[in-house]
């Protein structure tokens, strides 16, 4: 592919994203209500963890500030991934209705077109994520456990890396839809259940579940593993490199599965 082709593609991608955001903003009230409620839901989920921590102090040695750190990195990563790839998660609707056929006609790779559909910046969840992060880093810096000048940029980097990793898992799961069509059950396992698990320190889980979350579906590299270096100082900087490698491997596997699936795609809609 020529450099000029890539430039054209990026230009087209930006244009489609702008159209997508503009179309969402036609219903401003709906947009802001949705953003507020999404943030409220995320907050209530964190409140559950906070209540447990406030009663028992720590979870296997992880304080409320450290747990908030895990939660905020997950929230930020998930918000970024869902902002830019919301409809990768919703591929099943396209497969069942046959609407994917329409996307095949666009002058861009199908995945890229899919990623321009329903782009919506998740203000509420981002605000909540940054709020919890500020709270967590503030307390940890106050105790002298971290240095803010290094912790802030590293946290932003691992959040982006986490978004990539979550995207990779979502892509691989969505790609199975080319064979299975219905994927919501699988998403329940690979996305919902794993995201719920990594709100908590990995040490509380039994060995088999730790293995699943570290090797099978390596979501532990979204927040827990990097936090061992940034917040706890229990691992070296190599763990950040390992987290980046995990993301690259997962995205690579997802892309491969997607490409294979696309070559077998048969329209199911009417």
């Amino acid at each position: 592919m020529m450099i000029r082709d890539v430039k054209d593609m990026v230009k087209m991608y930006k244009l489609l994203i702008r159209f997508s955001i503009r179309s969402r903003m036609q219903y401003r009230f709906n947009f802001w209500t949705g953003s507020f409620i999404a943030a409220f839901i995320a907050f209530m989920e964190f409140a559950l963890l906070a209540v447990i921590l406030s009663r028992f102090g720590t979870i296997q040695g992880w304080s409320i500030a450290e747990s908030a750190y895990l939660y905020s990195v997950l929230t930020l990563s998930k918000s970024i991934y869902r902002t830019f790839a919301s409809d990768v998660h919703h591929l099943e609707q396209y497969l069942v209705s046959g609407n994917l056929d329409g996307l095949l006609l666009r002058p861009l790779p199908v995945l890229l077109v899919l990623m321009t559909q329903n782009v919506s910046i998740r203000f509420g969840e981002l605000l909540l994520g940054f709020g919890m992060l500020a709270y967590s880093l503030g307390i940890l810096a106050g105790k002298g456990q971290i240095e803010l000048w290094s912790a802030i940029p590293l946290t932003l980097l691992i959040s982006l890396n986490g978004a990539l990793l979550l995207f990779g898992i979502a892509l691989a799961t969505a790609a199975t839809g080319f064979w299975l069509t219905r994927i919501s059950m699988l998403q329940n396992l690979t996305e919902d259940a794993t995201h719920t698990a990594i709100r908590y320190p990995l040490t509380i889980f039994p060995g088999w579940l730790k293995g699943v979350l570290t090797i099978g579906l390596p979501v532990a590299f979204v927040n827990y593993m990097p936090a061992l270096y940034i917040v706890r100082g229990e691992a070296g900087p190599w763990i950040l490199a390992l987290s980046a490698a995990a993301s690259a491997a997962v995205v690579g596997a997802g892309a491969l599965l997607w490409r294979t699936g696309m070559s077998r795609y048969q329209s199911t809609g009417s």
């Binding site: 296997q60 219905r182 719920t196 698990a197 040490t203 509380i204 889980f205």
Partner: peptide
């Protein structure tokens, strides 16, 4: 059949919640 498969995900959620309490509850 599809719903019975769905139960695997639901049961797994339960195991995650149980692990949380087992982790917190030991010695408390």
């Amino acid at each position: 059949a599809s719903h019975l498969l769905h139960n695997i995900a639901s049961a797994l959620f339960g195991f995650i919640y149980l692990s949380i309490w087992t982790g917190i509850g030991e010695g408390r």
